[in-house]
């Protein structure tokens, strides 16, 4: 059974059909790429999956259950987490607090319990902190735990965003251009990190990326989007040689 399934997902903004009858699936544990020229609707697909927009038509199922139209916080609670194309960290909060916010959705104590710092609330907090520090260790950010997130170097901010997303204990991770703005060494490290995240955290990954080295290097299947439509699906080598993809996006064989 597919983990995530988009069934003719469509969204129109006024006269513009940004995403048109997209069929897409991510199987459990799979690493899937979503590529296409700028303005093809890739991020809009992410926004549909995460509930930022409700589709105008079509269905989106996560683990067999329709999720279209649910608010973003509900979808996060169901187990879908994301990063953003232009980093959206909580800039003036500490690195640790950024990850701790990610754990919020798994906390059980109520505001009233927090108000009186009851045992339930304190236990929750201890659990949140321990889990968050474990994540910082995995991402080699433990020494910077007390830095303002906004003062981290760019590459670290990207990694912190992934750590924060994983803190929500997702089963599906959506990465929006994780390699943007990284240098070649960082790119290799990032590819390793994504592979490692998938096995260690048991998530399926759907990623948007312009960097062909990264996409071809780690994705098992790739969807190509153009003008809001899926124009090709397949394994990396199939995509690389698909004439439609070459015409619309790649330009020449890479």
């Amino acid at each position: 059974m597919a983990h995530l399934e988009l069934d003719k997902a469509t969204i129109r903004f006024g006269g513009l059909t940004a995403v048109s009858e997209v069929d897409l699936e991510v199987r459990p544990g799979e690493l899937v790429g979503l590529i296409g020229p700028n303005g093809a609707g890739k991020t809009t697909v992410f926004n549909l999956i995460t509930g930022v927009y409700a589709p105008s038509a079509g269905e989106i199922r996560f683990e067999g259950r329709p999720i279209q139209g649910l608010p973003p916080h509900r979808i996060a609670a169901l187990g879908i987490a994301r990063t953003f194309q232009n980093i959206h960290l909580f800039q003036s909060l500490s690195v640790l607090d950024n990850v701790r916010v990610g754990r919020h959705v798994r906390a059980r104590s109520s505001l009233l319990q927090g108000l009186f710092l009851t045992r339930g609330s304190l236990g929750d907090e201890a659990e949140i902190e321990a889990a968050s520090r474990r994540l910082l260790n995995v991402f080699a950010l433990e020494d910077e735990w007390n830095w303002r997130a906004g003062s981290l170097p760019y590459g670290d901010q990207r990694r912190l965003e992934i750590a924060r997303a994983l803190a929500t204990e997702p089963r599906l991770l959506l990465l929006d251009e994780p390699a943007a703005g990284t240098n070649p060494q960082e790119k290799d490290a990032l590819m390793q990190l994504i592979r490692r995240v998938r096995t260690e955290f048991g998530v399926s990954v759907l990623l948007i990326e312009h960097d062909m080295q990264v996409v071809m290097g780690i994705c098992e299947r790739i969807y190509v989007l153009d003008y809001g439509k899926v124009i090709a699906v397949g394994r990396p080598e199939e995509i690389r040689n698909d004439p439609r993809v070459i015409e619309a996006y790649l330009g020449e064989a890479v």
Binding site: T50, V52, P71, P72, H73, A76, A77, A81, R82, F84, H88, L89, F90, Q91, S92, L93, D97, V101, G102, H104, V105, R164, A165, A167, T168
Partner: peptide
């Protein structure tokens, strides 16, 4: 505080 910092990210984090 997450809401203050970035509403979009806050709701994406649940």
């Amino acid at each position: 505080m997450a809401i203050r910092e970035d509403e979009v990210a806050a709701q994406a984090m649940g």
